[in-house]
Write a protein that binds this DNA or RNA. Structure first.
Lengths: 240, 240
DNA sequence: CGCGGGTTTGAATCATGTCAAGTTAAGTGG
DNA sequence: CCACTTAACTTGACATGATTCAAACCCGCG
């Protein structure tokens, strides 16, 4: 390996990186970090870009440094369903499987730090902390997927919309106190995306959004910026 | 610890146990197995029994040795959704969280081998193989949950029913060649369970089942035993 | 100015839910 | 062995929420 960089310092690339602070890299020591950096690659992609296709070979995993990624699945006749969203500093990838079972697409502009599959898998062998960290993320994603199953299976259209807004309100809130009762955020999804996520049509999404607006639960500016004056009222609409 | 049992032998309890062969215990050596056995408890519960309540403290995890467990979530007004099923030799539990976010209920008679939470968590620290095994199960469950999200969000009632039957056909097939094109199995769920899983009503479930029967895709005997003469035709109905 | 993507709105249709009877099958007790 | 009960399931008629199809709108951009 290389000698010229002090082993006890964090690589420059990582010093100010969110992945390093909160993501999976927080489990790595300086040595491991240096090793990973050697094969890692930082990249930015614009919204709408495909990151990974269904049944495609996976050769790189990545950390999401900023932006929102949507995970989708498609039926043979074209019906589509979003099965999850990932935010910084999530890890993007499905260890132990060579082929992807879903599509990953940038919903907004996304910045990634990617590394070869083998690098992560080797490091996972060496570092139980890393593996545990990944395990925990998988469990969290599982909890989340199951929550959405309830929403998809049992909620009405307007409850679905309210639930979605609530999720983004929680994620967008710039780690402001959790107790906050109002929210203001950019919806990173088109109506079509929302429909795909909630198992609805764009028309129904549109109708329910205007209903929420008429009832003064939300304000919509520029079709994208959402303002929720009273999160409790929105929560009530979400059926929880 | 005890001395009279040779450390290099598999504990009697485990010798013929499915968990030992295919479950998480397959990652443990004899020593670890002996340690776990000391605090483990084998139990059988009849169908319908609650294994774990929402927001309940978790103090024991378990291996499922036989039977089917259903995992459910409930909205405040009583609407219910099944969010997953577990079969032998799955591990039942949610590490790293003291409170359950879901209900677990025996769908059929179920035999469990349970152990204290701490025992597993300690052993997870010691054995990366065990942790990896659990991680893999979590990833599989995540894949499955996402598959069902597509079904819940985008499929019609009859496609949902067909998908469910297909899942049970796959799980029930006693590891007969995967290439098998017909199946015969006991439906371990009531119509109400099916409805709760697919986000439908029992009436719709009943109607779609009779439709499948009229179309000769399935035969139903005793309201419980399902025979599928041609899995490909069923698969076509499932919208894949 | 007009063009196109994303969005909203309206009216008609359809799938699924709701409500209400029946049916079947499995006890249970006389 | 025969009521009687009960739970699970089926079937029918009707109501309704969501989709479909069609049209209009809005707004940034060439």
């Amino acid at each position: 390996m290389r000698r010229d960089i002090p082993k006890d310092a964090v690589p420059m690339l990582c010093a100010s990186c969110e992945g390093r602070n909160k993501g999976i890299c927080s489990t790595l020591d300086c040595h491991q970090l240096h090793e990973l950096v050697r094969s890692s690659r930082k990249s930015a992609v614009e919204g709408g870009a495909a990151l990974l296709g269904e049944a495609e070979r996976i050769d790189r995993y990545a950390n999401i440094l900023s932006g929102v990624v949507k995970l989708t699945k498609t039926l043979s006749d074209g019906r589509q369903q979003i099965v999850g969203h990932q935010f910084a500093p999530d890890f993007l990838g499905r260890p132990f499987r060579a082929e992807s079972q879903l599509n990953a697409e940038a919903a907004t502009e996304v910045v990634l730090c990617s590394f070869p599959r083998e690098a992560i898998e080797r490091m996972m062998q060496e570092s139980p902390e890393l593996e545990r960290r990944l395990y925990k993320q998988a469990l969290d994603e599982l909890d989340e997927a199951r929550d959405w199953m309830v929403t998809l299976g049992r909620k009405t259209a307007s409850e679905k919309i309210a639930s979605l807004l609530l999720m983004f309100a929680r994620h967008a809130e710039p780690s402001g106190k959790a107790g906050r009762n109002f929210a203001r955020f950019d919806l990173p999804l088109t109506r079509a995306d929302i429909a795909d996520f909630l198992g609805l049509t764009i028309e129904t999404v549109s109708r329910q959004l205007t209903r929420l607006r008429n009832d003064k639960i939300i304000c919509i500016e520029n079709n994208r910026l959402i303002i929720v004056p009273d999160l409790r009222r929105l929560n009530a609409r979400a059926g929880n």
